Simulated assay, not measured.
Amino acid sequence: MTNRIDQPHKLDLVGNPVRISGIGTGHEATLQYRVGDGHDEVTGHFSVGGGAGEHGQFQVQADVGRAAFKLDRLLVQVFEKSPKDGSEINLVSVPVIYGPRIVKGYYGYREHKVVKGDTLSSISKAFYGDASLFNRIVRANPDQISDPDKIMPGQVLRIPIGS
């Protein structure tokens, strides 16, 4: 094993700061992180392990509040810089959904289990008071909703909540 990201999980709905944790090892006990959408990114580094091949736990908070992200989907990456040439090695990546791009003042989400007769518009009306805001739910659940006209009883949807 080289590096592993345990949090966030694939397509988790995250806010600011993005909390990154896992297990890793790096040259001189240093690893790098990057959180970005291809338009902007936030980077940093942290210490892990003993520096001579030992693995250790890590937990960092990436403050992405000033980033100018244009997309909902971000890529969280952890990697080591090669001592030979400075290239990125042992890179691990996790795609996530950035809640503050979906709702202003994002602080978390509620879960809604779809029942027979539900529509995204009716769910949006119940949670936001406005049926036309159903796209927020679609954006927060890209792994579950490929067609906004087709949700199924039993699906558990994330409903992003903000101020």
Rank of each mutant, 00 (worst) to 15 (best):
G86R: 11
G65V: 00
S47D: 08
V103N: 10
V78Q: 11
V48P: 08
V92W: 01
G15H: 10
S21Q: 08
L71A: 15
H39F: 12
E88Q: 13
V64Y: 02
I97M: 11
Q32M: 12
S82L: 02
P83N: 08
L31H: 13
V48T: 11
V76R: 03
P100H: 00
S87D: 15
D63Y: 07
D85I: 08
Q61V: 01
R101S: 14
N3T: 14
G86V: 05
V76N: 02
G86D: 12
V14A: 07
L11A: 11
A62L: 11
G44C: 10
E111K: 13
G105A: 09
V60M: 05
K84W: 03
R110N: 12
G24E: 00
N16T: 14
Q57F: 14
L13T: 00
R4D: 05
R19E: 11
G65M: 06
G50K: 10
Q77W: 04
F58V: 02
V60L: 08
R4Q: 14
Y98I: 00
Q57C: 01
I102W: 02
G36V: 15
R4G: 03
T43H: 10
G22T: 00
V60F: 03
D85C: 04
V42Y: 01
L75C: 04
I102N: 13
M1T: 15
R19N: 06
R4W: 02
Q59V: 05
A62K: 06
Y33S: 13
S82K: 14
I97P: 04
G38K: 10
Y33C: 06
A29S: 08
E80R: 15
G15Q: 07
P95H: 04
D85A: 10
G56T: 05
T30N: 07
V103C: 05
G22D: 00
H55Y: 04
R73Y: 03
V18M: 05
Q32P: 04
G99N: 06
S47V: 06
Q61F: 09
L11H: 15
D63L: 05
D12V: 01
P95R: 04
Y106C: 12
S82C: 14
H27K: 13
G24W: 00
F58P: 02
G105N: 04
V92I: 12
Y33I: 04
Y98L: 01
L71E: 13
V94M: 03
E88I: 02
Q57I: 09
A67E: 05
N3F: 10
I97V: 15
L31G: 00
L31N: 07
V103W: 06
L74W: 00
D85K: 13
G51Q: 09
I97G: 01
E28S: 14
I102T: 06
E54L: 06
T30F: 08
D6K: 09
K84I: 06
R66F: 12
R34T: 07
L91R: 15
H39V: 07
D40T: 10
N3K: 09
G86W: 05
G56K: 08
E111G: 15
P17V: 02
M1K: 11
I5L: 01
G105K: 01
